[in-house]
């Protein structure tokens, strides 16, 4: 399957990177990682590109990493649709001190607007 993983630097996006790579190895998926602008997270895009490339290379996968500028959710949906991806994968949200799941703004936008299937990684 052609899988597009979006990461913006939040904790849940790194968990999603790890699990999606494992899943791609098991299932033989073709994985592209898209680096997104996430206003809620700190690492800069260059660090994220490096981190994603390293993780893909270490897993023996093609280090296919793209940087998408502008509004993260809409750029990710547009890219997935125009490039023919079959699945978008995103982090499944952060948890509050009390343990409540809080979906990020990127996940919300993608869930409501994507025409391809979306997986949220927990």
């Amino acid at each position: 399957m052609n899988v597009l993983l979006g990461i913006g630097g939040s904790g849940d996006s790194f968990r999603a990177l790890e699990k999606t790579i494992t899943r791609a190895q098991e299932a033989g998926d073709t994985l592209t990682v898209a680096i997104l602008e996430n206003p809620d997270s700190e690492p800069n895009p260059e660090e994220l590109v490096e981190r994603a490339r390293t993780a893909l290379a270490e897993a023996g996968l093609d280090p296919d990493v793209r940087t998408l500028d502008g509004h993260a959710g809409s750029q990710l949906v547009d890219f997935a649709e125009s490039e023919g991806y079959e699945l978008i994968v995103l982090g499944g949200g952060e948890t509050s001190p009390l343990g409540k799941v809080q979906l990020g703004s990127i996940a919300e936008f993608v869930l409501l607007n994507a025409t391809v299937s979306v997986t949220l990684v927990r």
Partner: peptide
């Protein structure tokens, strides 16, 4: 349940209450 809490199994409930 709301936003994933409370958890459903006894072990998870005890872990969660430890935090709460």
């Amino acid at each position: 349940r709301a936003q994933g809490i409370p958890p459903t199994t006894e072990d998870e409930i005890r872990d969660w209450l430890d935090t709460v």
